[in-house]
Amino acid sequence: MITAQINGIRIAYEDTGGPGHTVLLVMGTGSPARVWEVHQVPALKAAGFRVVSMNNRGIPPSDECPHGFTMDDMVNDVVGLIEHLGCDNVSLVGTSLGARIVVEAALARPDLLSRVIALAAHARLEPLQQAMTRGEIELAEQACPPPADYRAAVMALQYLSPATLRDEGLAQDWLDMFAFDDGRISAGHKAQLQISQSLGDRRPAYRNISIPLLVVGFSDDAAIPPRLSREVAEVVPGAEYVEIADAGHFGYLEKPAEVNRLIINYLRRSFAATGAIEVPEDIRVRHV
């Protein structure tokens, strides 16, 4: 990865280059930018976009900043990277914590952005998500992860759709992948978790967002239920909402073709266009 000094720390990023419109991808809690490379980077690159993906602070080789940081710090990292690249009129795509970062960036620096796509967006957390986050922070402090099989099963229930888990072969593949990691929560990952604990309800603030926003919810998302994503679209003026059926929190990995087509369709649409986003007929959408 390329590294740059942004806001006094090292931020690592990948850049496909090229003359196309720049799309910056922002990942969720505890995950590196390479997760985007499985499906989203190749699809966007093939569609003619310049694709940049970054490791948020907290995730090496970006600086971990183990003593903690704020949402404003993470938003400023995105802004700083855009400025480092010498870009404006950039589109942002984020998922989970990354969705919160890109929506906050839309509020803070609309002058740099053309549009934003937020997967599993949320303006607040409910008691269940808050309890899960507190528990993960306590696990990080104890430095004693649960047994691999148990951890993998919990992650599968938390992040995947029941439709995925009904396929026993596919479910086993996911379980094997989840169990491969040792389950330890690093200091940087813990610092990202602590951000969610400190944020309140941002719905009133989001009423002031002025750039185009597409919110994508996942019908079976147990980590960020789609009702929380729909709330964001309801308060942001002119925002659009699409909900992907049979997809969990990792919907962009479970249903990559559908998610990629939605992203590309939205990015390609003329900025002057009006009316609802066109959803390709082969995408299974839960109409709400």
Score class of each variant (00 low, 15 high):
Ile82Met: 03
Ala245Cys: 00
Arg134Lys: 09
Asn208Trp: 07
Pro204Met: 09
Val79Pro: 05
Asn265Cys: 09
Val236Trp: 10
Val232Tyr: 14
Arg50Gly: 05
Gly217Ile: 11
Thr16Gln: 06
Ala191Ile: 08
Thr70Tyr: 07
Arg227Gln: 01
Glu64Ala: 15
Val288Tyr: 05
Leu92Met: 09
Ile2Glu: 02
Ala143Trp: 06
Asn55Asp: 14
Val51Ser: 06
Ile9Lys: 02
Asp72Arg: 14
Asp182Ser: 13
Pro146Leu: 13
Trp36His: 03
Arg203Glu: 03
Thr29Val: 12
Thr95Gln: 04
Arg230Met: 03
Pro204Val: 11
Gln5Trp: 03
Leu81Trp: 12
Tyr266Gln: 00
Ala4Leu: 04
Ile263Glu: 08
His21Met: 03
Pro19Trp: 03
Asn265His: 10
Asp246Asn: 11
Val242His: 08
Val285Thr: 05
Gln158Leu: 02
Gly188Leu: 08
Ala123Arg: 05
Gly86Pro: 14
Val26Glu: 04
Val93Asp: 10
Leu81Tyr: 12
Val232Asn: 12
Pro162Trp: 00
Thr16Gly: 03
Asn56Phe: 06
Ala12Ile: 01
Arg261Trp: 07
Gly86Thr: 12
Ser114Asn: 09
Arg124Gly: 11
Ala171His: 13
Ala156Asp: 02
Lys45Pro: 08
Ala12Trp: 05
Pro212Arg: 12
Arg261Ser: 10
Phe178Trp: 11
Ile9Glu: 01
Phe250Tyr: 15
Ile11Leu: 05
Phe271Tyr: 07
Ser198Tyr: 11
Ala148Cys: 05
Asp15Phe: 02
Tyr266Met: 00
Trp174His: 01
Arg100Cys: 02
Thr16Ile: 12
Ile11Val: 02
Gly200Gln: 10
Ala205Val: 15
Val215Ile: 08
Ala143Tyr: 04
Tyr252Lys: 04
Ile117Trp: 03
Leu175Ser: 00
Ser91Asn: 10
Gln194Glu: 10
Arg203Gly: 00
Glu168Ser: 07
Phe218Met: 12
Asn76Lys: 10
Gln192Tyr: 11
Glu126Gly: 07
Asp182Lys: 10
Glu141Ser: 06
Pro204Phe: 12
Arg207Ala: 09
Met155His: 14
Ala4Asp: 03
Glu138Cys: 04
Gly68Asn: 00
Pro162Gly: 00
Gly94Ile: 13
Gln5Lys: 05
Asp246Cys: 07
Ala222Glu: 15
Val154Lys: 09
Asp182Pro: 15
Asp282Gln: 14
Ser96His: 13
Val75Trp: 13
Gly30Phe: 11
Glu37Val: 06
Val279Asn: 01
Ser210Gly: 05
Ala99Phe: 03
Leu119Met: 04
Cys65Phe: 10
Ser161Ile: 05
Met1Phe: 01
Arg115Ile: 07
Ser62Trp: 11
Met1Lys: 02
Cys87Trp: 07
Val78Ala: 09
His84Leu: 01
Val79Lys: 08
Ala121His: 10
Ala123Lys: 14
Gly58Val: 04
Val259Cys: 02
